[in-house]
């Protein structure tokens, strides 16, 4: 129940109830009702993580790209390292 996978916000409904801010999230095409009251900053199109029916965080695209870029560069540097190539991985 602690695990969550990223889903994309498809719709958000306006509401005045602070304990209920309904929206819909798509998980690879599977739609689910989600309560957004802890994530008022979410917008349609954002990727979010949901725990037991409640949206708790937005996925920060910039951070995700930076991590991937850094790791890819690390991989490219490895390829240039002849010692490593010889170690017969």
């Amino acid at each position: 129940m602690c695990l969550a996978i990223p889903g994309k916000v498809v719709s958000l409904e306006p509401t005045s109830d602070e304990t209920n801010r309904p929206g819909k999230v798509s998980f690879g095409g599977i739609l689910r009702e989600v309560n957004f009251c802890f994530l008022p900053e979410a917008n349609v199109g954002d990727y979010v993580l949901i725990h037991v029916g409640v949206a708790l965080s937005k996925i920060d695209e910039k951070e995700a790209m930076e991590t991937l870029k850094y790791l890819r560069e690390m991989g490219e540097l490895d390829e240039l390292d002849p010692e490593e190539e010889n170690s017969g991985e």
Binding site: L3, A4, I5, P6, F27, G28, G29, I50, I59
Partner: peptide, 15 residues
């Protein structure tokens, strides 16, 4: 955990 049954659909998902 809401993990979609089909692994293929899941692995094509962003992030």
């Amino acid at each position: 955990n809401w993990i979609p049954k089909k692994r293929t659909a899941e692995s094509n998902m962003k992030y």
